[in-house]
Design a binder for these strands. Structure first.
Length: 496
RNA sequence: GGUUGGGUGGCCGAGUGGCUAGGCAAAGGUCUGCAAAACCUUGUACGGCGGUUCGAAUCCGCUCCCAACCUCCA
């Protein structure tokens, strides 16, 4: 880890060396889900990506405060036709029950994908006071106005006072937005179509409502992130992340609100993950082009031929860079499954290897050390997991060759091998967040291991006796049971 | 229409000027009682047309196609 960490900043559209505001500490805010719908796979991709960043930053020795919000208010439309409100009414659920239900589901899903929980997971409804305060500040600074119980952000006023800053993240120009907006829906009470609500008056029948200086209402669509990132990370912090689709208007407005209230744009590095596609298109419930994590794990979907375990899915995601779109397909998942299996088997073989090189390293020992360092270095380059995995697979070949005898263990020193085992394990499991789903341990696993060893010993005896009929029978029967036997120089191994 | 980002070998997917990406699949070989696994070897891929350059997938121009955003969305 001697190289510098660089990351691509959406704000500047360049890769930059990462320098935290406070040495040794990182403040990272990631836009979490809105919990009025079941989470889908696209969400997973984004949060797995940020999970890897979180893990890598920690592995690099930073103390990270990772804030990921839950938005449980503000995205409701106020026209009385809102689907979730209706759903809540039909199921006789409180809105908070709906939010809880989908929050739980979201957490379950991320746990399965082995994503670490954030340091703080604030809810929008738990920060109404902070949001109201922020609205007040923005009004006081002259960047918002109230009309009939609603408060709107005044983009024109903001722009003239801040060097035409609006649009700095998304590359949009006010004029273009205005021109476009003419064709869109009515602007209501807004002075300008590009203005946006930061506080909405609650009409009759709207369930989620709070008292405010402007009457009963609820916070605007983008305010919660500004308020909560400021509260927990300060007016200036290191990293703000989210999906690409949030860049505009969500993040653009967030910056405007932050500057409007605190004279600071919040994050210094903006990171955006790209979309997970299926059939070349963004997943979308409306046209059926979607697959839920549950369906993917179980295989209960026309889009996949079988279920894929969460770790295969995670591995699959890590094989592309977070800033690239990724196209989900059954064929690609099959490839990921095989690749991941090969990786894990090599890892397991590695545990049984013992160095015979004494204190001296040969070529192989050097390759192991350098290959691992190269893999870590790839992570320094904007969290390039696909390249890191490419380096890892080169190491997989070495491990297999050491096991198979094509490479000699005499070329590896005990010290090197021990360090290699530890370093690779850290990369695979701590940083990339993979895990061996089969090695769940426990008494049953142990019993199975022993039973298998007995069978393999019997078969080995049969082979020694050249009783091919018996040995093949054992192998075939195990195959039928879903267990593959692999004969190696050092004896047979098996996998399910 | 505007903004942003793409089009890479059978599939997925890295890669910003010359140096092997990697995974899966495929072919040949080694090993093996056989098989599987493993290991070794094999792919002159960069949407199209021009241009810059000693040299371009990589830079520039034009063009075709795709996606996301511009309305809630990871």
């Amino acid at each position: 880890m001697s190289t510098a960490l660089t990351l691509y900043n959406s704000l500047t559209r360049e890769k930059e060396t990462f320098t935290p505001l406070v040495e040794g500490h990182v403040g990272m805010y990631v836009c979490g889900p809105t919990v009025y719908n079941p989470a889908h796979l696209g969400n997973c991709r984004t949060f797995v990506s940020f999970d890897v960043m979180y893990r890598y930053l920690m592995a690099r020795g930073y103390k990270v405060r990772y804030v990921r919000n839950i938005t449980d208010v503000g995205h409701l439309t106020d026209d009385g036709e809102d689907r979730m409100s209706r759903g809540a009414r039909l199921e006789q659920l409180e809105p908070m029950e709906v939010a809880q239900k989908f929050s739980n589901q979201f957490h379950d899903m991320l746990r399965m994908l082995n994503a670490l929980p954030p340091s703080i997971e604030p809810r929008a409804t738990g920060h109404i006071i902070e949001q109201i305060d922020m609205v007040r500040e923005i009004i006081a600074n002259g960047y918002a106005y109230e009309v009939d119980g609603s408060v709107y952000f005044d983009v024109a006023a903001y722009n003239s006072a801040n060097d035409d800053r609006y649009g700095e993240l998304s590359g949009r120009k006010i004029d273009e937005l205005l021109a476009e907006s003419r064709e869109l829906k009515s602007q209501g009470d807004k002075r300008s179509p590009s203005d946006f609500a930061i506080w909405m008056k609650a009409r009759d029948g709207h369930i989620l409502r709070w008292d405010s200086p402007w009457g009963e209402g609820f916070p605007g669509w983008h305010l919660e992130c500004s308020a909560m990132s400021t509260k927990y990370l300060g007016t200036e912090f290191d990293i703000h992340g989210g999906g690409n689709d949030l860049k505009f208007p969500h993040h653009e407005n967030e910056i405007a609100q932050n500057v409007g209230a605190c004279h600071h744009g919040g994050a210094r590095y903006w990171l955006h993950t790209n979309m997970l596609l299926m059939n070349g298109r963004k997943m979308s419930k409306s046209d059926g082009n979607t697959i839920s994590p549950e369906e993917l794990f179980s295989g209960d979907s026309p889009h996949v031929s079988e279920g894929y375990s969460p770790m295969v899915v995670r591995f699959f995601m890590l094989q592309s860079h977070y800033r690239s779109t990724m196209d989900l397909s059954d064929e690609a998942l099959q490839a990921a499954k095989k690749g991941y299996t090969r990786l894990l088997e090599a890892w397991n073989l590695l545990q049984g290897l013992e160095a015979k090189g004494g204190a001296q390293n040969g070529t192989v020992g050097k390759e192991l050390t350098e290959g691992l360092a190269a893999a870590y270095a790839e992570m320094d380059d904007d969290f390039n997991t696909p390249r890191a995995l490419a380096r890892v697979f080169e190491l997989v070949t070495r491990i297999n060759a050491l096991q198979g005898g094509q490479l000699s263990l005499e070329e590896v020193s005990a010290e090197t091998l021990a360090a290699f085992k530890e370093g690779l394990g850290r990369l695979l499991f701590d940083v990339l967040g993979l895990k061996d789903e089969a090695a769940s341990g426990g008494a049953e696993q142990e019993a199975l291991d022993k039973a298998m060893q007995i069978i393999l010993d019997l078969r080995q005896q049969a082979r020694a006796d050249k009783n091919w009929a018996l040995s093949d029978q054992l192998r075939d029967a195990l195959n039928e049971a879903g267990i593959t036997v692999k004969d190696g120089k050092e004896g047979a191994s098996w996998s399910i």
